[in-house]
Computed example of a mutant assay.
Amino acid sequence: MDIARNIAKGLIYLHEDCETRIIHCDVKPQNILMNEYNCAKISDFGLAKLLKPDQTRSFTRIRGTRGYVAPEWQRKLPVTVKADVYSFGIVLLNITCCRRSVDWTLSEEEAILEEWVYHCFQAGQLGEVVRDEDVDKLQLERTVKVGLWCIQYEPSLRPSMKKVLLMLEDIVDIPLPSNPTSSLSAI
């Protein structure tokens, strides 16, 4: 949870606290470094997009890593900080489930992490997504719900990173998330 909170704090800084707002565009486990105090730090700003002071979105060609790229990139929509929220949601599920976002060595039902996690959540079988049986079940449910909200297909449904942090810290209630991929089937 400390790693997830540190990543969230880093993204809050980029999205809200920097003089020039930054969309990282490539949030993934390989771009999260740990310092000597086990504090997570966001790295590799090679694909980052700087926003002008009055700018909240940007039209740009697709950036990022497959499995972590928000759906709006493929839809050629303007990109906002919500693209990083999506990527953070996938990373949060990676951390929670201790596995990659796509793993074709698993069964078809389990291969795509976000679909499998939502299925387990919907079925009330969250214990299936973790390897540790001594996990705090309330924290697991909270973390999965936050991850599912972050990866909603529609960017407007995703919370801000500030709200994500409040949800992770159990300061605000987390409503039940809808199926994050439900809009994909309508296309």
Rank of each mutant, 00 (worst) to 15 (best):
V135C: 05
L106V: 02
M161Q: 03
L50P: 07
L184M: 10
S87Q: 05
D2I: 11
P53E: 10
I3Y: 06
E36T: 15
Q74G: 12
R158F: 02
Q152F: 06
R57P: 03
D103N: 14
R21I: 01
V69D: 05
H119E: 15
N179P: 10
V27I: 09
R158V: 07
Y118N: 06
E128G: 00
L33P: 06
K137P: 03
I174W: 02
R99E: 07
E72Y: 09
I151R: 11
S101G: 13
L168T: 00
V81M: 10
P29G: 05
P180G: 02
Q74E: 14
D170Q: 10
E114F: 14
V146L: 00
D2S: 12
S182W: 15
R100C: 07
E109R: 12
G67Q: 07
C120M: 15
S156M: 14
H24V: 03
E169Y: 05
Q55P: 03
D103P: 00
I171G: 00
C39F: 12
S178T: 15
A40K: 06
H119I: 14
A83C: 13
K52A: 13
A48L: 09
I112S: 08
L47V: 08
Y153Q: 12
N94H: 14
E72R: 14
S101C: 13
V172C: 04
S183T: 06
Y68M: 00
L106A: 07
S156G: 11
A186P: 04
Y118I: 05
A40E: 01
D26P: 07
S43M: 08
L14E: 00
I187Y: 13
D173W: 04
R99T: 09
E115I: 13
L47N: 01
